[in-house]
Design a binder for these strands. Structure first.
Lengths: 106, 106
DNA sequence: CGTGTAAGGAATTCTGACACG
DNA sequence: CGTGTAAGGAATTCTGACACG
């Protein structure tokens, strides 16, 4: 019963299945990779593998494309989100360190 | 951020990837299906697809096999677990109905 | 019983390119 | 720019069978 959340990040789904899950064509999925919006892993032999998180991102990309947003613009949005997340994570680390510091002083 | 747990049940992994995840051979994985221990879905064209839950079960099967337990025996164990789970679920439904009943009487 | 392997065919995936707009 | 498509090859998967123990 090891319900490990990291399953969401495991790159195990091949492109045909991703097509079914997202409704996108292989062409579009590969193209979004070319535009640095999505980063599948590859097997030894070069077969792309995607995670469930990738599938969700692809659906998000499809929505944004429908709104007429270009891939370059979508990439910028993701970069901003990434920076925001990294900042948040750094702050959490610092908060943890501060907590540890004050605990030792009590 | 729809962290839907049903991802664990989604049959999206093809047998080659399952081999890597579990360390089992394709032969063994297909054989355990023949023995009714595991139930992958099939694509239109007949390609087997497994879920993360299936992967976990396969590792469990492998452990039991290592202990020398035969597949028929393993199947019986799973049938017992299944019955137990079904009973538990039925009881939960009944409990819910009872709660609803007494709430309306208050 | 449980697993390996070779065999041949079918389905999947890959890349690079041409097309259209 | 974003996506479709035909092309040819490489990798994957499938089934049924023979082998061993």
């Amino acid at each position: 019963m090891a319900t490990n959340e990291s399953y969401l990040e495991k790159k195990v789904i091949s492109i045909g299945t991703v097509c079914e899950l997202t409704g996108l064509s292989e062409r579009r999925i590969r193209y979004y990779e070319e535009r640095k919006l999505i980063f599948p892993e590859r097997t030894n032999r070069g077969i792309r593998k995607y995670s469930f998180t990738d599938v969700e991102r692809l659906m998000d990309i499809a929505n944004k494309r429908e709104e007429g947003i270009q891939t370059a613009e979508i990439r910028k949005e993701y970069m901003k989100e990434k920076k925001y997340n990294e900042r948040t994570m750094r702050e959490q680390v610092i908060r943890g360190q501060l907590n540890a510091y004050f605990r030792t002083r009590e």
